[in-house]
Amino acid sequence: MYYYIVKGGKPEGPFQLEDLKSMGLSGTDFVKPEGYDDYKELRELPDLCQELGVRHERAAPQYYATLDVRLLAAAIDYFFAFIIYCLAALAVLIKVDDGSAQGKEEQWMMLVFGLGLIPIVKFLVNVIAEGSRLNASPGKLLLQIRVTDMQGNPIGLGRSFLRNVAKITCVITFGIGYLTGFFDRKQQCFHDKIAKTLVIKGRLI
């Protein structure tokens, strides 16, 4: 196993474990083990902390997803929900198509009703996905961002449900609840403040 470190603001390495032991590294030094995509603080790597005698602890989130990235993730989520609708609509067209005028009318009523279910499907997917161990909806997964609590921990289904319900406040305020994220250092929108959540990203994303 080889490791890279940041020293004087510049990456150096590769080093072996024995080299690191002689460097006197602290928990806040950045280290990238072989195979990792990004540097992490040494204190975030439990196995390496044990080898180097450094206290293991979770670092607080430092990098937050901007509002434009979050809106793009929401658009992707709606796209996936629309794909589900299209597949369901195709099944309706095949099943109900009996050639009669009444059959056509039933088709249109079901298709229009189905359009109204798209936001509900997105809501359910977001609650389940963001409350799971993935901590992210499909759109957020694609953009490599995730939802956590204020310490960077998973939020669970209960807080995920609260967060997504609280988004209604952003809608009834004509988007002002979302715009608050522009003026917040941690990019928290109003529903994030209600649920005490963050949307974070990796350091190099």
Rank of each mutant, 00 (worst) to 15 (best):
E130G: 06
G53I: 03
K122Q: 14
Q107T: 11
G152Y: 05
Y39M: 03
F182N: 07
R163W: 07
L42H: 01
G9I: 08
I84T: 14
D47H: 09
M110H: 06
L204K: 14
Y4F: 12
Y63K: 03
G181Q: 05
A75R: 06
T197Q: 09
Q151K: 14
L134I: 08
R70N: 06
R163N: 05
F190T: 06
I200K: 11
R163Y: 08
A75L: 14
S22F: 00
G175M: 07
V96C: 06
L157S: 13
W108E: 13
D149I: 09
G152S: 10
P46T: 07
F80L: 15
F174S: 13
E41N: 09
T169M: 10
V6T: 01
A129K: 08
E44W: 01
T173C: 07
T28K: 07
K193V: 00
L124D: 05
A88Q: 06
G53R: 10
E41R: 15
G114M: 12
K201H: 07
L87N: 02
V96D: 14
P11C: 07
S100D: 06
L111C: 02
V121W: 12
Q188L: 02
D184A: 10
Q62S: 12
P11F: 04
A89Q: 05
K32T: 01
G114V: 03
I118D: 08
